[in-house]
Design a protein around this nucleic acid. Structure first.
Lengths: 349, 349
DNA sequence: CTGAAAGCGCTTACAG
DNA sequence: CTGAAAGCGCTTACAG
């Protein structure tokens, strides 16, 4: 319920009618000029488009979607903004989507409880699809998307729902590579610093890491629960690390920002040096990771491919909302070695 | 020009007609229930709203805006995503706007040349207003906004255009405080690390800093041109710093991310210690600034007030697009002292 | 206070 | 290939 207010005073927009009158054509013909596969004489189309350009006519998207039931709108749901990985993804995705004529309607929610409300608001605009970045959607909210006819794409963090599209990197493989990297360099006491326990990214990275360690015959990595993907959580996790009955020499953190916090916590609070006393690996390769003060060894997300895949899905869904859901996992880079890891001496066990 | 495609298959949405039939009322009456100041019997309204809730009816915003010429959409233009200050602002602003029933349409453009195109696309959705974060709009683009009847609010970085709203902190005052802080602590050789030369934020911070130094009778601060608001620009600026004929002992950087890059450049490349050899002050107080590894002395932006003011403007403009433009500057915090600054010894000059 | 009718700016069968 | 007409889902004078 909103207050009724005066109409906008600005100059009235130019409409199909205006353009049709100007050209001495019917509105139907003018309209057809804007649809690639409409039947219309090429020369007519050209004339219409040229004149439209001149007098600044563009079809009103609201009127269009009223009829076509297509909005060219993609909803984007964001919540975890602590992680610098997302702002970049968000803006690049937006740009790429704009390039194919889709507009992004942004929905933000600090805590996930509010995500559902936000999604509801979003759905009233009938987005052709919704992309979820770093947020989990309640199954209720997902049902609503389905009813509204807006398919979902989960980016990075995946959903259990088989009805949803997904794009992420192969986190399990990333975890395995982290394990191999450390084991190859003689690390034998491994630990995983775990973030949000329900996030697929966290779970898969952990599983890959732990499984591979077992396969290689190394003691099962200990898991430290940091609980979230954030600097503060990593910093706090240093305490749990200190409380361990032994000191791991190789630590894989759920992502970069967590690793950076962890390293600083370990240094400040425990007086330990990385990589002298322990090696630390992150995940993402955010730009901060290569800053000299961090110089973090990490695994790069295949962001370009992930973005391209998402846009591809978006395009397919815009054309046909009934498209069958698929989730694509893209293999990440090998470990990028910087200054938070090093070889361990061979030890007699 | 787009491809024509099949209509969405999903269940048809429930419309006013459905609800009216269900309630045995006219569509006019049903419609009126959703407008606070429409003439309608309170009991009728209640009945309509209750039933709408039950069967999941919500007015179609496209149909609504076709008539009211109001879209409840605010366009948000973003470009400088290197600066961690913006993601937070972006999401908080989005949340706050959602809370008053407005939806955010995001427009991103990596380089400012593309901003204009992006704005054009945005305008086809006739946003009730557009908020510009960290981007400059060409006067051409601003003219288009005016023609389209979408007023602009510049957030943080201001525009010269007197027709635009603006919300920022009092950057000049911030610059003065930085000068006072350093001078009070016996710094006598001051420098300013300048970012994007056209940004009002940069210009005003510099002017405040320089003016205040002069007022206090200290030698005019030297200006180092870093050119952009980014870590890399700050890191690179260390070279220009080294090339100076003397070594400043107090440096004020245009913002935090620049300061962090500068400090690291100075440490890594020149082997200087901050704050031992020189003090450095940033601007913004991004969350990174209080991380132990940076522990940056800085001036906090009054983000809460800036956000509140922006939302207030947005609300006013939604009610009346003819609202007279005003720019509001909010006084920033005093310098927040951390570990990149310290007292200088009294020197004989 | 309520309802019938016109109309917002478009697209799309349907005829020609 | 083009045009006249109906209709998308709403709101809002206008009558009553």
């Amino acid at each position: 319920m909103k207050a009724k207010t005066l109409n906008r005073q600005s100059k009235p927009r130019v409409t199909v009618k205006d353009l049709a009158r100007d050209l001495g054509m019917s509105v139907s013909t003018v309209s057809r000029a804007f649809y690639a596969d409409a039947v219309i004489a090429p020369t007519t189309r050209e004339a219409v488009l040229a004149r439209a350009q001149e007098i600044g006519y563009k079809p009103n998207p609201f009127a269009q979607s009223l009829i076509t039931k297509k909005t060219q709108i993609v909803g984007m749901v964001v919540s975890d903004i602590n992680n610098p990985f997302y702002p970049e993804v968000m803006t690049r995705l937006t740009e790429d989507l704009q390039a194919i004529g889709m507009n992004v309607m942004l929905v933000a929610a600090s805590d996930s409880a509010k995500v559902d409300d936000a999604v509801r608001l979003l759905l009233s605009y009938q987005p052709d699809l919704v992309i979820i970045l770093a947020a989990s959607l309640s199954s209720e909210a997902m049902r609503e998307c389905r009813v509204a006819g807006s398919p979902c794409i989960f980016f990075n963090r995946l959903s259990l729902d088989p009805e949803c599209f997904g794009v992420s990197c192969d986190n399990r493989e990333g975890g395995r590579r982290a394990a191999d990297f450390l084991i190859d360099r003689n690390h034998r006491a491994l630990a995983y610093v775990s973030a949000f326990p329900d996030a697929s990214t966290n779970v898969e990275r952990k599983e890959g890491f732990v499984d591979r360690a077992k396969e290689r015959g190394v003691a099962e990595p200990v898991v430290i629960e940091a609980g979230r993907f954030s600097y503060d959580a990593g910093y706090a996790a240093a305490d749990a690390f200190a409380a361990l009955p032994f000191r791991p020499d190789g630590v894989f953190c759920a992502n970069d920002i967590l690793a950076i916090g962890f390293i600083e916590g370990v240094r400040e609070k425990l007086g330990l040096d990385v990589p002298k006393h322990l090696s630390v690996i992150g995940f993402d390769d955010i730009s901060m990771a290569h800053w000299p003060s961090h110089s973090l060894t990490t695994i790069r997300q295949p962001v370009d491919e992930m973005l391209a895949t998402t846009v591809e899905f978006a395009r397919a869904l815009a054309a046909n909302p009934e498209e069958k859901p698929v989730v694509r996992r893209i293999v990440p880079s090998a470990v990028i070695e910087r200054n938070t890891t090093r070889w361990r001496m061979e030890e007699t066990e």
